[in-house]
Design a protein around this nucleic acid. Structure first.
Lengths: 225, 225
DNA sequence: GCATATTTGTCCGTATGTATA
DNA sequence: CTATACATACGGACAAATATG
């Protein structure tokens, strides 16, 4: 507690514990390792090692495990330990079924929040700039942000939370792929989708999104197998 | 559990708690009390009382609290305790936004699973029988099952889980209402919706469902305020 | 198949911080 | 302000399950 993570320069230092609990702090560090690829799917998380490294008690670490398990980033096998989740092809297919439902309902809505449209323009511009400069990981981040904003057009906090969790899960598969191959084909389509949304052509946007998601699913399913 | 000190090798001290963790077992008991109205919204859950009653440790009970907190059945106020969630009108509106999305997508699908249709017929029949016999709580249970099956037409495990959670949350409001007033108006419409689904009239089913959900939302919003 | 070491699951006691009467 | 009640977090303990030789 007194000396937070002096050996680990990568990690954020422990924030003020006024607002967040120690368990959430530990969960945040592990979450970042998983979503950013530091911990690959299938890796085992040993309690002893992590309590020593994070300098938290076993109880607190186990609470962090539970938080991330509920986000489907970790898998808890009884008496056998905690592992980074490995997505099956069935998982990927299921995630894309939900994405088609959420994003489809979003673009079908007649009333588009102008603030969200502005945020969409920013996300597309960021992705294009990152691509031009070869920062493909940043392209991926902007792409995920784009789709998170699309989902937010539904105007539901619960849908936003579901979408955030789905995209975090998808990142587990992303690490098995070249980010350029993964994101480059979809950049122009994000731009096109944005144009259709801005001009209110919902039916065309819905169709474009459907084919978009079908193809993305195929790419990721190939990476799974 | 009942006798922590006794080391009798032959007696089974924890019949079923070996398979699932003790925390999940405790969570299951509390979940049941909340969804079945034994613990009303706003009630405080005191650690000391529950550790004594359930005969589990504080750590284990806290694990159970976390689990139910993520299911949105309990509310965790930092340093101030754990309470049964009280749904605001905004929560009810949000839940119905998601229900319109999930159930709308379900009835719009062209391919209806025949097994699900059979299950729907059973649910409607159960509800009607229970209503005829004045068992209004059972009517409510069958009604929720009806809508859970509707959601399952999407063919997604994740959507099923979301729907189950939404309906569990809705039960929090149900306890503030007379179950007869709540469910009776919707019985004939479930029957009608089933007929439309069986005959493949998706557009009509979608419209009926939309007006159905709008009215149910109004009823519950009134109960909230 | 057995014996041992490791790891997890659970519980306890306690110290500290925080909110409320 | 004090007192009280409670949540947060830690470390130790031991049984049970699993992994290892």
């Amino acid at each position: 507690m007194s000396e937070p993570g002096s050996l680990d320069a990568y990690e954020e230092t422990r924030p003020f514990r006024v607002r967040s609990s120690t368990a959430e702090w530990a969960a945040a560090i592990l979450r970042r390792r998983v979503t950013q690829g530091g911990l690959l799917p299938g890796s085992r998380l040993v309690e002893d090692e992590l309590t020593a490294e994070l300098e938290v008690s076993r109880n607190t670490l186990r609470e962090a495990f539970r938080l991330l398990g509920h986000e489907r980033l970790l898998e808890h096998k009884l008496n056998r330990g905690v592992y980074v989740r490995v997505l099956s092809p069935a998982d990927v297919a299921d995630i894309y079924r939900v994405r088609r439902m959420i994003e489809g309902a979003a673009v079908r809505r007649p009333d588009k929040d102008p603030i969200a449209l502005t945020a969409l323009r920013d996300a597309v511009a960021d992705a294009e700039r990152a691509a031009a400069e070869g920062r493909w990981l940043d392209v991926g981040t902007a792409d995920l942000r784009f789709h998170q904003i699309i989902a937010s057009l539904n105007g539901s906090q619960r849908v936003n939370a579901m979408m955030a969790q789905l995209l975090a899960e998808l990142r587990l598969v992303f690490h098995a792929m070249d980010p350029r191959v993964l994101h480059a084909p979809f950049l122009p389509r994000n731009r096109e989708l944005l144009t259709l949304l801005e001009s209110g052509r919902s039916a065309e946007a819905e169709h474009l999104l459907a084919t978009y998601l079908d193809e993305a699913e195929r790419v990721l399913l190939a990476a799974c197998a």
